[in-house]
């Protein structure tokens, strides 16, 4: 126990690493939802048989953009996107730069989850809304999104948990955070206590995210 508190890495570098991880997860979660939610809605609505079928654009977005992005392993995508991160944020180091590739990595993932959630909304509800004179936007906002809010929150939770995992990977190529800490000190310096502490922290972080997400999802669910 004494070992932990006298370990300079844990005392000095750990708080900073925690903040960096939270920053990466926070920023990229924000952008993932910001872009992924509308993208998922669009994928659903423009699909054949959807509210406003647009077969060509749907095909391009669904098959090419989303599937290709999702099929590239994140470790590779992350490295490949370093130039883009530099162009957007002015640097390739630090949590903000890492958030660029993190967001791009998880946006298609989240969009697919959103699409699946919306597909589960019973078609009769959409018929009912249209018969009462809803515009397409009203169907999206008042039926599709509102009726699938509990599963959407669950999908966002899953996405954020994935982001925690990705953020540890992003740490290795300059993102910082707990991943970098564990690699630099735990692995390269054989500091077992650092390794244990980071693992425990990441497990706790994931548990907290999962718990909060489930609570919110359940409180919204009236089915």
């Amino acid at each position: 126990m004494n070992d932990f508190f006298s370990n300079p890495v844990l005392v000095k570098a750990l708080p900073e690493a925690i903040i960096e991880t939270l920053q990466m997860v926070g920023i990229s979660a924000f952008f993932t939802v910001l872009v992924g939610l509308p993208l998922g809605v669009f994928l659903h609505v423009s699909a054949p048989g959807g509210l406003r079928p647009m077969p060509v654009i749907n095909r391009i977005l669904s098959d090419i953009v989303v599937n290709i992005t999702r099929s590239i392993p994140f470790a590779i995508l992350m490295v490949a996107l370093i130039p883009l991160a530099r162009a957007l944020t002015g640097t390739s180091l630090g949590p903000v730069a890492a958030s660029v590739s993190l967001s791009i990595g998880t946006i298609p993932f989240f969009a697919r989850l959103v699409e699946t959630c919306l597909r589960d909304v019973h078609h009769g509800k959409i018929d009912a809304a249209q018969v009462m004179g809803s515009t397409n936007m009203q169907v999206i906002s008042k039926v599709l999104l509102r009726e699938s809010l509990p599963p959407l929150v669950a999908a966002a939770t899953t996405t954020v948990v994935t982001l925690v995992g990705y953020s540890a990977m992003a740490g290795l190529v300059g993102g910082g955070g707990l991943g970098k800490l564990a690699y630099n000190y735990g692995f390269q310096r054989f500091d077992v206590s650092v390794m244990i502490v980071t693992i425990v922290l990441i497990v706790v972080l994931v548990q907290v995210i999962q718990l909060v997400g489930e609570r919110i999802s359940r409180s919204l669910d009236h089915r």
């Binding site: 009769g124 009912a128 009462m132 004179g133 515009t135 008042k142 039926v143 509102r146 009726e147 919204l220």
Partner: peptide
Amino acid sequence: IGMVFQHANLMDSRTAAGNVAHPLEL
């Protein structure tokens, strides 16, 4: 035209009052 469906097709996220208010909100 008002329509009544076989399975009512109510919005699960809305209360009874919320469902009745739905067409008025539009």
